[in-house]
Write a protein that binds this DNA or RNA. Structure first.
Lengths: 148, 148
DNA sequence: GTTAATGCAAACGGTTTGCAGGGGT
DNA sequence: ACCCCTGCAAACCGTTTGCATTAAC
């Protein structure tokens, strides 16, 4: 059994548990998501899928991504005011955002994930997730700047 | 000289330096911002201002808030997919967001602000700002839950 | 067969823009 | 007098929704 088969089994189960039908569209959207290590937008998924599924519509992609977000398969990212991005990696991690090229890169910082919050912060309520956004200029853009 | 006079001096200077005219609308928007400790939306500022300046338009508010953001007087917040919020506090701080009532509260955590980033992270580029978002349920919502 | 999902098109809502008139410097 | 800024209205764009049809179970 390949790793993809495993993943397809996973989506089959998840849909089943949620009472959702496993339609070809959902399967293909899921497979498309698997092929993205980065943070695709709904529109990008749609455009890519159209090559294989010429009749799929953008609203189906939106609806499916919303369902997948609810199922916890992916995570909506509200990084800028522009289009919503979807995080295909649901493990605890953070993001570095280049203010020049808008690239979003995953960051792992387990020590910070484990660090205790200050009393003044934990007193605010029940804190469930922590998400750090680092903003700056990525190496690629720094290099361009130096050359140009 | 009152603290407000100081602030009005500040906006006068900032506009001057930026080659922007200090119009009554800009002045009133600035004063309105001063009276908000929280994270108002453009629409809220607009609604409040209309009581005093019945002819002001929403697009002027948007344009002015964008200018103020560029001047560094306020900061745009991209917290959810919904309306943009503006942070009237530009000191280094973070946010706690209640997933129930969507309240956004300021958090201060100076030790974290000073903490060194891991090598793997600082190697990504030149990091300028760090912004932490804590998501959870605020005490008010927790209390409601227990009572209801 | 039942029920939910799809695709289409149109609506939506926050935000932005073109433009002509008005006000600050 | 100049140019910037304002207010109006309309455009914009990503996203959502209503509806009839279609397909999964």
């Amino acid at each position: 059994m390949t790793s993809q088969d495993n993943e397809l089994d996973k989506i089959r189960k998840l849909c089943d548990q949620a009472g959702m039908k496993l339609t070809p569209q959902r399967l293909e959207i899921f497979k498309e998501l698997l092929s993205h290590e980065d943070h695709p937008s709904a529109e990008l998924i749609f455009t890519k899928l159209r090559e294989r599924l010429p009749t799929i519509s953008l609203d189906t992609v939106y609806r499916t991504l919303a369902s997948f977000d609810e199922l916890g398969i992916i995570k909506k990212l509200n990084i800028s005011n522009a289009r919503t991005l979807f995080d295909t990696n649901i493990e605890q991690h953070h993001h570095f955002i280049c203010t020049k090229c808008k690239r979003v890169e995953d960051i792992h910082w387990p020590d910070f994930d484990k660090a205790n919050l200050p009393e003044s912060v934990s007193a605010l309520g029940s804190i469930q997730t922590r998400h750090l956004e680092l903003h700056g200029i990525c190496n690629q853009c720094l290099n361009k700047k130096n050359k140009g």
